[in-house]
Write a protein that binds this DNA or RNA. Structure first.
Lengths: 331, 331
DNA sequence: TTCCACTGCTAATGCGCATTACCTGAAGGA
DNA sequence: TCCTTCAGGTAATGCGCATTAGCAGTGGAA
């Protein structure tokens, strides 16, 4: 039941293994060196036997794989955050198919202190030619090590440098948040609140920076997510919420206090739901171009593997009009 | 920036490549042959350099990989059917994580005549130790070839033999459909219609067989999906619909004709939606244990890889009470 | 005739690892 | 003293392929 090898083909066709390899790879320069007759003979045997080269041996000899790794710091399929990551994977799969690569989901990474780690005893990253990294927070040390080792990888989402430039395809949260703030100012709002971390992960920091730029010179407080409802205690007329789910919480609380949204209070959510949340609320906010980020990440990765230099891209987010931002009616 | 190899480790530790390999693999019998001192020296160098063995070379030499392939005949992520396949993947990922394997999504398979094919010029199946096959219809010839080559694979969904037994983890459609029919008979129904292919893919054939067994001796017509609405033209009082989406179509048409469901007509759907369809309708039918099928498929696959014999499992489907099956009120 | 170029191939090598066969030195036994 | 045994290693080999170097034969130019 042993597999068919090039040697078998060679024997059957009455040529050497080298010739079979040459015919298979059809190298320029070699094509003239093998007469049609020999080539046909070899090809016929290959067809008859149904031979296909072992991709493993191939890569071992040639150094490439056409396998792209996908590492996720948070679980992708199961779990609540699954729906959030799914669109990224759609884009990644689509793009991988186009460039003719297979995708290796690095699912075997064990949890260490509740988080997945790339580098662990017997890590498998090197199976792939390069890797797409997914997750809100990437481990800074691991990134630095990847950079230092010169392993080709692309982060989905902007990343700060880690001992060197990190390739990424991110979403331009800063711009869209600033635009949303400016839109609110245009509607007469002057007192703002930001609910969220505003720091830590780059994506949070970027949003917050956009918020601060937009509210420069105006009243603008920042509250941690845990204190979401306290935002109602401030005199802010427009609340910007990092997490969609927290937006729902605040909306609920506002209504419970008899506040009309957006009549008395405006609420803007900054991105798609990452936690299960009622999605029937038509929040003003924006959409993260998740599938497109996935697609481009794979593009960038393949260029990187071909020897390209680090690439950093920010994709625009599409604003969502929604129904929760209105004119400021407060005196 | 060349990768670190065992030879590098060997040089740094002042031993031979063989020794490094022995230390790494920690073979029984060899453990006594290498004194703790040497072993520690090697391990220290490994730790310092962050060396990890190239899994490809490893597999080439030893024959194992801890990579499980996932081949899908229909696109998994994008597209309409995406939601249908997702639960399978959840199970597969979960199980793969438990057994410490990575998943290789064979996305690079090109379309040939509108379908993906496993075997094509330069196929990648052999990258993985074994493979999970997903899709409603698997190509019989390809299956036969897989069987003939002795490649370990497991189909998600029952499959007929293909020149030999095919390992699968399927859903027991036959039983649950027959039970549903019997339930309908208990409610006084005597004239039945089946809307669907009823043949071709095993899953269709199994449902139809269950239907026929259940309706033995009674009036029971079968209509192709294209003629779904014609089912209303028959005098059937209970319509069994292969595809959830077609059930929605029939329900719509029935209501348009002034028929009450389930007052005048009962409709039973045979499984979860595989096409986009309004899912707010509470159809009577059953649930396919998709995640569990995925999980068990990986279990079976790993056993197969370890040298086990073909395994065939049918998992029970959970009946869904629903609101579209009622007592037969027709004279 | 000698040299060269060109055709049509093949032998040899190495990718990084696992494995097998062997080698060396020292201790123990007869 | 000679023979074994065993500990502690190493050299050699092969997995299936791509690639490089090279070889035999022929035809033409000098």
């Amino acid at each position: 039941m042993g597999r068919i090898t090039q040697r078998d083909i060679a024997r059957l066709a009455g040529v050497s293994q080298t010739t079979v390899s040459l015919v298979l790879n059809n190298r320029p320069g070699a094509e003239t060196r093998i007469p049609a007759e020999t080539r046909d003979r070899v090809l016929r045997v290959i067809r008859e036997t149904g031979y296909v080269a072992d991709p493993l041996a191939r890569r071992l000899a040639a150094g490439r794989n056409r396998i792209l790794g996908v590492f996720t710091y948070e679980p992708v399929f199961p779990s609540a955050t699954g729906d959030f990551y799914h669109p990224f994977l759609i884009g990644i799969e689509e793009s991988a198919e186009q460039v003719g690569c297979d995708l290796l989901l690095l699912t075997s990474a064990p949890l260490v202190d509740g988080r997945k780690r790339i580098y662990h005893q017997d890590h498998r990253l090197r199976l792939a030619d390069g890797c797409v990294l997914l997750g809100r927070e990437l481990d800074r040390e691991e990134l630095a090590r990847l950079v230092a080792e010169g392993y080709p990888f692309v982060s989905v989402g902007r990343r700060d440098d880690a001992g060197g430039p990190v390739s990424y395809v991110g979403a331009d949260y800063g711009s869209v948040v600033r635009e949303l703030v400016e839109g609110a100012r245009g509607l007469g709002h002057e007192k703002f609140a930001y609910v969220g971390h505003g720091a830590g992960a780059e994506s949070f920091a970027d949003r917050h920076r956009g918020f601060q730029e937009g509210t420069a010179g105006l009243q603008a407080v920042t509250l941690p997510p845990a204190d979401a409802e306290d935002a109602l205690g401030t005199d802010a007329t427009a609340i910007f919420v990092e997490e969609y789910a927290d937006g729902a919480v605040i909306l609920q609380a506002a209504r419970a206090r008899g506040l009309a949204v957006p009549g008395d209070l405006s609420i803007v959510t900054l991105g798609d739901p990452t936690r299960p949340a009622p999605t029937d609320i038509d929040f003003t906010g924006f959409r993260i171009p998740r599938a497109e980020m996935g697609r481009q990440a794979v593009e960038v990765l393949t260029e990187l593997i071909e020897g390209g230099s680090p690439v950093q891209r920010l994709l625009p987010c599409e604003p969502v009009k929604g129904l929760t931002l209105g004119r400021n009616n407060v005196a």
